[in-house]
Design a binder for these strands. Sequence first.
DNA 1: AGCTACAGTTCGGATTCCGAACTCAGGGGG
DNA 2: CCCCCTGAGTTCGGAATCCGAACTGTAGCT
Lengths: 148, 148
Amino acid sequence: MPYASYASMPCALGRPAALLGERWTLLLLRQIFLGTRRFEDFQATMEISRSVLTDRLNVLLQEGVLKRVPYHEDGRTRHEYRLTEKGRDLYPVLMALRTWGEKWMAPEEEESFHLHHRDCGGGVRAKVECTDCGAELTARDVQVTARS
Amino acid sequence: MPYASYASMPCALGRPAALLGERWTLLLLRQIFLGTRRFEDFQATMEISRSVLTDRLNVLLQEGVLKRVPYHEDGRTRHEYRLTEKGRDLYPVLMALRTWGEKWMAPEEEESFHLHHRDCGGGVRAKVECTDCGAELTARDVQVTARS
DNA sequence: AGCTACAGTTCGGATTCCGAACTCAGGGGG
DNA sequence: CCCCCTGAGTTCGGAATCCGAACTGTAGCT
């Protein structure tokens, strides 16, 4: 288990990076945050093979990022994939990607969707801040200390 | 080119997700932010095969996330991989992963490193905020509007 | 000239991924 | 009751990636 072994590394950054840094997983989460919830809909909106989709959904279920919720349609019981609280907490990760994408990977064409704060209509962006003084931080403002 | 085609999708979130959502890329960036800069050091600290390491470094070079910088050691000229401004701007993405990892994937053992604000010693965390009113936002506070 | 270190490249075998077909379960219609 | 339809996977052969180990190339040092 070469790549997968990072899931157990002693690093709060390495573990999520290994989990989400698997092919399709970030795109899958993007789709989920945009409201996709059913197997067939994932398959329709992304060009992912069914077997890999099954695998990725199962990994996210096992990690507790997603949960299967039963629902009714035409009097039939099926189930859909929804974010858990742990999954919803990934929002800053996706927004950080988007903030970066808007600045550095912006194409000429239109974007497929826009985001606005419901209350005031403002834009959305991710940032890093100090938990004590509240200052916005860049990599240079942060001191890395290796474990003793 | 199935997965790679997302690199050209009209979505400021999908494009970065496809780029960084490739195996090893996030772990590679983690290592770079921790100070690793040379081919042999990447190879030593991650269990990645040399050919894939070559490939991932080249992709990040082509995307302008990394640059090759010559340096001298023992009077020899070699080069190392360093972040560009575009690359440094990925810091919030990595910090968002770490913030999430600390909350939801924390193991019993020690972490391999700690981060502190240089100026005040405080902790580091990622968050999402409104560009207008400055409020901290969750997924529920944000309205998604599809392209007209 | 030989030895060493860095930075790759090459290549055969193992994994993973893809696409299409197949399975299975629950209704609905005839 | 039997057949068809849909959603949600599972199976499987071939293609694309990845792995590990060996090989190449370059530059300096002895």
